[in-house]
Amino acid sequence: MTAQAGLAAPVRHGRPGRTLRRVRSWIIGIVSIVLSLFVFVVPFVFIFLTASKTAPEASNLSFTWPQHWALWDNLVAVLTTRDGLIVRAFVNSAVLTIVSVAIMVVVSAMVGYLLQRKRSRLNPIVNFFVLAGLIVPPAVVPTIWVLQSLELFKTMAGLILIEATFGLSFCILLFRAFVATIPRELDEAAVIDGAGPVRLFFTVVLPLLRPVMITVVVVQAVAVFNDFTNPLYFLPGDENATVQLTLYNFQSQTLSQWNLLFMDILLITIPPLVMYIFFNRQIVAGMTSGAVKG
């Protein structure tokens, strides 16, 4: 189709195929939408429907409309299980996410800023460690050994510091790339106006990093909130767990109550969903930041 159009006359290229192309785009679009419903939407609808059923009905594991809507009852049941274990888990996860991301952002913004601004012999070394931090898998038991000797093992503080450390490399790369877009003249102007290095960074540079900061915060908040492995190793147990750990433990305890299990999944999916709705663009920017420059 396009070949013929090109042969006829370069000026009119594409013209004859326009209606045809529009029909084709409709057909492909509709086929893709139908396929996407099966592949990507059905699992989420399944979670919602199962979370709305009564326990006997949910145990069929079937993809059917609930005969009795028990969404609210299930919600209350999940929230009150074992004296509000899941509510506590949500509080724990919120504290973990907020504090570790805050530490990560400030600390790595300082590194990214310095790495971009200052030419020193340290830079290649720092760059090497940043890349190593991205690639090397953390050594589990030795990390526990370090945490134990600092008396941080099985404490929230320990897990916060761990999550902050493991996220550093990714954040530093994003900050370094973004600092390059802030003109150096701004730094100089601030210095001439009498700002010291700390004020220069915290009152001039940091506010200008806002766009990339939103990206980093959102991406890392979702990552920390969804993390299962690190809480499993460094903050084990049932009482003081994070939401992912609670969900995992819940799975082995409530074998006959699929409705409650899926209600728990539904609850845990809501915070990332809200993040996605509000910060769609920033998430996309963060995830693709490496794509164009490689």
Partner: peptide, 19 residues
């Protein structure tokens, strides 16, 4: 001198101890 190297320190400390 307005890009002080100690800006590396907090990150370096975390990285060193926990990684």
């Amino acid at each position: 001198s307005f890009y002080p190297s100690w800006f590396y320190l907090p990150a370096a400390a975390l990285y060193l101890v926990f990684f």
